[in-house]
Simulated assay, not measured.
Amino acid sequence: MVETSVQDLKPDQARELEEKMARIQESVAAPPILETARRVGRLMDGKISTLDEAMEALKAKMLRLTESADGLRGSTARKVVEVLSPSQSEGDMYSEMTARCTYMSETVMVFLDGTTRFADFFNEICMRFKGLKPGLFELKYSLPDYPSCALDSDLDMRLMFRSLAEFKRTSVDILVRICDFCANCVADGVQCSAAAAASSCVSVVSTVIDEPDYLGDFRPEDPKVYMSKQWREYIKCGDQKFRGGAVEFRQKLCMYAIEVGFVFVYVRNDKWRVIAECFNKLSEGCKWYINASLCPANNFFYIRQLNNVHTCSGVLRQQKHKLLSSTIVKTLINDEFRGNPSLKAHDIMDRLKNNYGLDITYRVAWKGKEKAMKELHGSDEDSYSMLT
């Protein structure tokens, strides 16, 4: 088995391995055989064994021992093959898997295997997403307990496959994200690592499409970065504090879920403790979980437990979100409403669409305006009570 599975063993190595495995088999078979031989002509267990009886017993035991020793030898050989021939055991690791690549609000599926090079995968991303400039974005993927793993080289590709095999996953979510430092590098005339990796993609495009006489100085527009991008940083790690207590924590948790693209449900929700789980926990067994509570010493809210990795398939930013409430709308328009109290509901809808990439109904926009007006001027009941 070893000789047929491991091709690069030298003759002396194979011979030495064979001798050691034979000694293993002998160590299993020898003690019971010697014990049977000692019983001949001796009084043991109230009976004297004859030579014929001992031979029959010895024959039966030898057959059983041979079978068990062969089994042990075969299992040992298989373990040796796994150690000496890692390429055999890594075959499953390099099987084909699916990468769900998300850029802004669009997701495409890409098939990968262990032979996929990073440059080829990078070129595929460039071609699949329209308006994406090579060198101005970075790739991130998530694993359990590791929500933001970098992907920018062939080594990272191999490590990603190995990690996915260890977690027994056949798919991975990859985030295509515009990075500010790449944009600064390009503006300063410096090529960063991501831009260098994309050079092959740039060269391919330049050799195929060369129409300056027809297109003039046309350049594809930069993808729009919405003001909600910073919401991704609202929930980061354990022990993170929120000075506004439970109210601030709930609102930032909702805004974080809107930007990342998932829905959660409250397990407990009061002014002392908030516990939330992913909406897909029951249907897909998603592990995302957060637990935050009040610190009586300073009345701040602190994240006590956080598993910020989604194992479900429902993480995708959308323009409409059920957690986008009128309270969040009020927070977003507060400053503008103070300078322009005549702001209409349709104006609010347009601003959230253009600045945040989010769609809300007329009712949500109107209620958000009413809450902003109440916070600025107070309620009618408060005004009447002041007059009386």
Results as ranks from 00 to 15, higher is better:
L316E: 14
L323K: 12
L253A: 13
G314V: 03
L294N: 12
L306K: 03
R317H: 08
M255E: 11
F264H: 09
I333D: 00
S313P: 04
V267L: 14
G285R: 10
I275P: 03
S326W: 14
L324Y: 02
L306Q: 12
N298S: 04
K322V: 09
V247I: 05
N298V: 04
G261S: 14
A292G: 15
T331I: 04
F300L: 15
G285K: 14
F301S: 00
L306A: 04
V274R: 06
Q251A: 03
K252Q: 05
E284W: 13
T327M: 04
W272H: 07
N334Q: 01
N307I: 11
Q319S: 04
K322S: 13
E284Y: 13
P296A: 03
N299K: 08
I290H: 02
N308V: 05
H310V: 10
Y256S: 11
I275A: 04
Y256K: 14
S326D: 12
L324D: 00
K322P: 10
Y289D: 04
L306G: 15
D270E: 06
K271S: 07
R250P: 07
N291G: 11
W272C: 03
N307R: 14
C286H: 05
M255R: 00
V309R: 00
K287L: 13
N298H: 07
N269R: 12
A246F: 06
A276L: 15
G314Q: 12
R250F: 05
R273C: 05
N307A: 14
R250Y: 09
Y302G: 15
L282P: 02
A297W: 08
R250W: 01
K320G: 01
F262W: 02
F279K: 11
N334M: 14
S313E: 14
C312A: 06
E277R: 13
K330Q: 11
Y302N: 11
V315W: 05
I303S: 02
A246T: 07
C312V: 01
G245Y: 04
T331N: 09
C286M: 09
K271R: 08
K320C: 05
Y256D: 10
D335T: 10
L323Q: 02
I290Y: 06
T311S: 15
Q305L: 15
M255L: 03
S325E: 02
T311D: 15
Y256G: 03
L253I: 02
F300Q: 11
Q305E: 14
V329R: 03
G244A: 00
W288P: 10
N334T: 07
E284L: 08
